[in-house]
Design a protein around this nucleic acid. Structure first.
Lengths: 205, 205
DNA sequence: ATTATCTATAGATCTATAGATAATGC
DNA sequence: ATTATCTATAGATCTATAGATAATGC
């Protein structure tokens, strides 16, 4: 039954909370947690600073809410790894989905990267609760594929780390990538070709 | 001829500047530029805050000095890529050197990662001056190896990005890696085996 | 004489709250 | 009546400097 002490949010509540979180994503992903200020978030959101604090309990609350809301979206590509598909094609499709995420959601990628880089001080419980069981279950799936001789023997944990690292690199270290890719060629097109070839060669020994 | 207006640093100068930079590496790599405070650096160095500012022109000066001093060390593994060696073995040895760096110097790795993640606001000139020409020259070397049919055709830029990403991942995202590698096996041993196999398979098609 | 260090504090920045006012919904 | 917003500001934190004192090197 619904808890009578918890009101359902009004339309204005929903809209403003959403506006604030969008602004916070922009500011936190650019400057990191500590480098971001409520002033910047308020300005980006077009609201006054006290009004921001009317909707959230403080800076940390905004950050944690943002990370929690994005967590599911962030894990989706891995969730979609399908036990009934062809192992090699499933993993290569996963690589492509992760690369697409880096291209389409670089701010989200950098937001997570900054949090993990500093030891996940606010997100650790979320990682334990959601990332870890998913990671373990997908590692188990890959191990069954290996046991069925449908993949060469490898450590699924390091395989997944390689996929995360090599795809998210294009979002997280975009400033360095764009400095070094100084011609007009499409970076993500080249990255896709490279990563597909690399993981395919490893998975089809 | 030596500039008479520039004194050579005394032994105390050298020792204290070194102590401060070591403390700053610890603090900046843990909390990022904005999250670090002069108080923390002073406390870590065992010096008073004003004394820190006697040796450096400010927080930004400490950060830039630290990054500049570490730049050369950071590029060394790539410098060592030897045009006269066997292409596959040279690149695999480079992968191993980078992984060793991630294991032995995780603070340095995270320091750079934090700076790049936020768009390299203080280090961009250094990257332009030192990283970029080295990167371009080693890409050219790899292209000549490809032209000689000693490596399969691939984009050297994305190859290098993959190597950076997959090795530095173990330092930069150590908090996540250790959360997910919860058994007692040696992470870096497994990573080495995995990465050597992955890059070898791609380079020996 | 010059170099190194300390205490005290100025001045800026930042998070958060108090308290009043305006807008909205029954 | 309740929800939303604003102005003003308290209180904490942080970088940096002023100015005095102690230690070191010619």
């Amino acid at each position: 039954m619904p808890d009578a002490s918890v009101k359902k949010p009004s339309r204005i509540q929903q809209r403003n909370r959403h506006t604030i979180l969008e602004a916070a994503l922009e500011v936190f992903s650019r400057h990191g947690y500590r480098g971001a200020t409520l002033d910047q978030i308020a300005s980006e959101a077009g609201l006054s600073k006290p009004n921001i604090l009317y909707y959230f309990d403080g800076k940390a609350d905004i950050h944690v809410t943002l990370l929690s809301q994005l967590m599911q979206t962030w894990l989706d590509p891995l969730v979609e790894l399908n036990p009934d598909g062809d192992p090699v094609e499933e993993i290569l499709a996963y690589v492509q989905r992760k690369l697409d995420m880096a291209q389409d959601f670089p701010r989200e990628s950098r937001l997570f990267a900054g949090e993990i880089l500093q030891g996940a001080p606010r997100m650790r419980p979320e990682l334990e609760a959601h990332l870890k069981p998913l990671f373990n279950s997908k590692c188990a799936l890959i191990r069954t594929w290996i046991a069925q001789d449908r993949l060469p023997p490898l450590d699924p944990r390091h395989l997944i780390f390689s996929i995360w690292a090599s795809t998210q690199h294009y979002a997280d270290f975009e400033s360095q990538v764009s400095l070094l890719m100084d011609d007009s060629t499409n970076t993500f097109e080249g990255a896709s070709k490279h990563l597909q070839a690399m993981f395919r060669s490893m998975l089809t020994r």
